[in-house]
Write a protein that binds this DNA or RNA. Sequence first.
DNA 1: GTAGGGTTAG
Length: 586
Amino acid sequence: MRAISPQCFSVSAFRRLSSHAAARVDNHRQCITGPTKHTSHLHTEKTEPLISLIKSTSSKPHLLQIHAHLIRNSLFQHPIFFSPFLFDIALPPLHDLGYACRVFSKFSKPDVFQYNIMIRAYGMSDSPGNGFMLYQEMLRDGHQSDGRLLTTLMDFYSSNEKYTEACKVFDDMSHRDTIAWNVLISVYMRNRRTRDALGVFDMMQSSYDCQPDDVTCLMLLQACANLNALAFGERVHRYCEEHGFDKAMNICNALITMYSRCGCLEKAFEVFKGMTEKDVVSWTAMISGLASNGYGRDAIEAFREMQRAGVSPDDQTFTGVLSACSHSGLLDEGRMFFNSMSKEFGISPNIHHYGCVVDLMGRAGMVDEAYNLINSMKVKPDATIWRTLLGACRIHHQADLGEQVIERLIELKAQEAGDYVLLLNIYSSLGDWGKVMNVRKMMKDRGIQTNPACSTIEFRGKIHEFVANDFSHPRKTEIYEMLDEINQQLRIAGYDAETVAELHNVGTEEKQIALSYHSEKLAIAFAVLSTPPGTSIRVAKDLRICVDCHNFAKILSAVYSREVVIRDRNRFHHFREGRCSCNDYW
DNA sequence: GTAGGGTTAG
């Protein structure tokens, strides 16, 4: 049978199809007791083109035409046509909820699938509450909700941030298939319960009737990347190999990202090299991975290699290339790429591109130029770009500009504790203690909450989480004893925490700051305690690492002969034999 | 006489 594409759609062709189909449905009604083999064949022949016509068009005018014809031929109330029609009109890309509601309300007896479509459509709209009402109406009509509908409902709750309800639906399900488990993972990921998401992998594998699929692996790899969970990520990688998922481009690309974000460039590159076909996503993942791990020049070389391979860069590729320049302090190269991006490649700069250039100029000490660049942008500056500049002000002790930047953040109603901490650091580095007091008071008056910074470390497949002065870990006593011992050893080697004037934990009293056990130090102490000598220590931190912890890790890498990899909010810090890949703190 | 639920791969 000839495939029907939207391009060859014509009204006359359509009329022919629908009249055949109408005849067939009438025929079907007449011989409902038992169609012959011949008529059954005829049926498929005549209805399928019409159904595939509905499915293949994403154009609203075509669908409306189809709608009119269905009504004219009394076919509209037939679920075989109504379902795909509703599917097309209610869900993206069209997602015309108003139209879908009108046709849905005219449909005499919607079935579970049709309710399912409408609930999904409501879930994507700004009136999601109606979706739940519709679900209740469906149950009142005597429909039994099946597993697929419950999966939709779970996702529906989850996309409306009702995570408890979403989990409850899952708990109440009598039978869970792979997709239901996958939705549970996505519920956890949206709810920032990334560790719980990883736990689902074990539960799925121990269930006898359903196994993780490629979608499960994609989401888990993303979770591993977020958590710096290298060992878990390797486990998922092996699973992919065992099930043949590792040939798929999206899995490979996710693997490259996972390994890069876990600071394991060799593995990322191995996956990259092994790909038979590489698309712009693969190249960009590799370039960004090199960039964030401090291999700026290699990232730029990879960019050139990509062009030689005939793959065109897109906006995200340039984000990777520009961040390579900013992380490696390549000012001239960065400007060159920024200019060529729009001139040669026709890609107009977005906020991320500007952000990289602001970072680049700011680190180079050109804070005023960076400020002017932000003001000249066609796009509206966001909080992140102001924070980048604020970070530069902190490096170069630019108190006046720092104050102005805080004002911009206040205008955006986006000021966070971390912003005030940067300002505090500027004042304290200038020795302006009066201003320090003012900022503290300002924070108190404005009710700025300090969220404790959190470091995570993976050990034996489990993620261990630490906040500063954390006493919640089961091995807390050993950890604190170990940290004290490490401090003694490092002091012998020249580590001096006392000289550090930086402040980072503003929420606590000054006395506590002096004594504070930063989350990354606790995580490192835990690793030294629980892993054999020589094992690499990999820590992920949700905020920036402070100067003191940076020095701590640097000296520790020599004294304890351990490679230490810390991934903070901005970048990786690789410490080996008393040296850091990023040369200095920033 | 059929449809259908889950993935922002960078």
